[in-house]
């Protein structure tokens, strides 16, 4: 069997076991209501995590995600409430800006050969700073179009609600999976993450791919910002602090190698859901501090990185064994 898929299976197994354990303690968690809320509550995280998966698959990192989400939220709030722009137009403007922002970071990373960590760190400060330039207040968004989108849901059997934003996240994941495995762009992302020099020598357009990856991450961060603003009905400069780290955690727990080249978008979905399950459990329990989420996520991250290292080590050992024989 391919050892590469093993982290994915491990994640899936942990996800099922965690959910089963929760249901065992709180049978009420086994319902479409909880499932629906899981999707709605983590929609923005999931959408941003799809972008992060591509970035990490290519061997990079994008630290600007959380700031870009906050930036989008504030920008939407300002445009809609202060300038009376229709939300749809505001969405288009926000997505355009965040995509160009991402593409710009990609171009700097590629052409100036600056590590992605540094460039996106700068991007993180820049986007967060721009929020404060626009406003330091939390601006509520009160618009009938928002109310309409927020009220949009499909009633699942059992009373659960598959909301618009929950559905949107699922759609983004499906598009992400198709792009990763069935598009030229997807194959280039894996190629760049596998070995940049080889990819270049094999004729992969590395520049276009790198810029595309960060543009995509920017776009999806913008989309996550829109979802976040629909979810909270407000724009606030200090929102979504540290979300980039949550998405990185989801991607790694989902079985994607931080060194790039190996991983699955579907794994990231499970990574997001695992984080959601832990949070839901804490809500059900009622006595635990919400910081327990962070502790459990930390432990999971450690174990997954260890698992990946062991698998890489084992597969290396096996290759040398076979080539030696």
């Amino acid at each position: 069997m391919n050892t590469r898929v093993l982290p994915l299976y491990a994640t899936l197994l942990i996800c099922i076991i965690a959910y089963a354990a929760c249901v065992f303690q709180f049978p009420a968690m086994f319902s479409t209501r909880v499932a629906g809320n899981l999707l709605t509550d983590n929609a923005f995280l999931g959408i941003a995590a799809v972008g992060m998966t591509f970035v990490i698959l290519s061997g990079g990192i994008d630290l600007s995600v959380g700031s870009v989400i906050a930036f989008t939220g504030v920008l939407l709030a300002v445009l809609i409430t202060r300038y009376g722009v229709h939300p749809l137009i505001a969405f288009a403007i926000a997505l355009l800006i965040t995509t160009v922002f991402g593409a710009g970071m990609g171009a700097i990373i590629h052409y100036l050969e600056v590590p992605a960590f540094i460039v996106t760190l700068a991007g993180m400060f820049l986007a967060r700073g721009l929020c404060f330039v626009m406003t330091t207040d939390s601006i509520p968004i009160d618009h009938e179009f928002y109310a309409m989108l927020q009220g949009l849901f499909y009633r699942l059997p059992g009373g659960g609600r598959l909301t618009f934003i929950g559905l949107l996240m699922m759609v983004v994941f499906i598009i992400g999976i198709v792009m990763a495995h069935f598009s030229k762009f997807g194959s280039y992302v894996y190629a760049v993450g596998g070995n940049r020099t080889s990819a270049e020598l094999m004729g992969v357009p590395v520049a276009r791919t790198t810029i595309g990856i960060y543009a995509m991450s920017g776009f999806l961060s913008g989309l996550a910002g829109i979802v976040f603003s629909l979810y909270t009905s407000a724009g606030y400069s200090l929102a979504a602090v540290g979300v980039e780290l949550d998405t990185i955690a989801a991607v790694v727990i989902g079985g994607t190698l931080l060194t790039g080249g190996v991983g699955y978008v579907a794994g990231t979905f499970i990574g997001v859901i695992i984080q959601g399950i832990i949070q839901t459990y804490i809500v059900f329990d009622g006595t635990l501090s919400s910081w327990w989420t962070k502790i459990v996520v930390g432990v999971l991250l450690f174990s997954f990185i260890a698992l990946q290292r062991i698998l890489v080590f084992l597969s290396l050992k096996r290759t040398t064994a076979t080539s030696g024989g």
Partner: peptide
């Protein structure tokens, strides 16, 4: 100079 993380066909 190939990509060991991708399939032979890729």
């Amino acid at each position: 100079n190939l990509l060991p993380n991708m399939s032979v066909a890729d």
